[in-house]
Amino acid sequence: MSVPILKQGDVLIASIQAALSDRELAQLHDAFADQVGRFRSRGVIIDVTALDVLDSFATRTLRSIAYTAKLRGANAVVVGIQPDVAFAMVQLGLSLEGVATALDLEEGLAYIRDVAKRGSHRVR
């Protein structure tokens, strides 16, 4: 099952609803890399609310998506990491170093709006 990427204004949103295989994660990565440029997005939100586990490959892919988006000119934010997942991740030494995180989708959108208002030199 591939994850649909929704376009909401100049923000791309992907909500992951079930545990993904490594191949599906790679597909998601490619899709984001492509669409960020195509739609000239300034924000990318990955919603992991429904996931009850994030392994090392998923973490690395999320980080990689964020870095790629950054290089293509969009800020990425991972939203909805559950308390248990967060705890398990630090126990396993997995961290989303350098990737913005937010409590939920609403917060994620607010974050992207904030960043755009504060520092971005892009012409709106």
Binding site: I81, P83, V85, A86, V90, T101, A102, L103, E107, G108
Partner: peptide
């Protein structure tokens, strides 16, 4: 550090 990192993962 673990506590701080975990809280950050939740966006705090």
């Amino acid at each position: 550090l673990q506590t701080v990192t975990a809280a950050r993962l939740m966006g705090a």
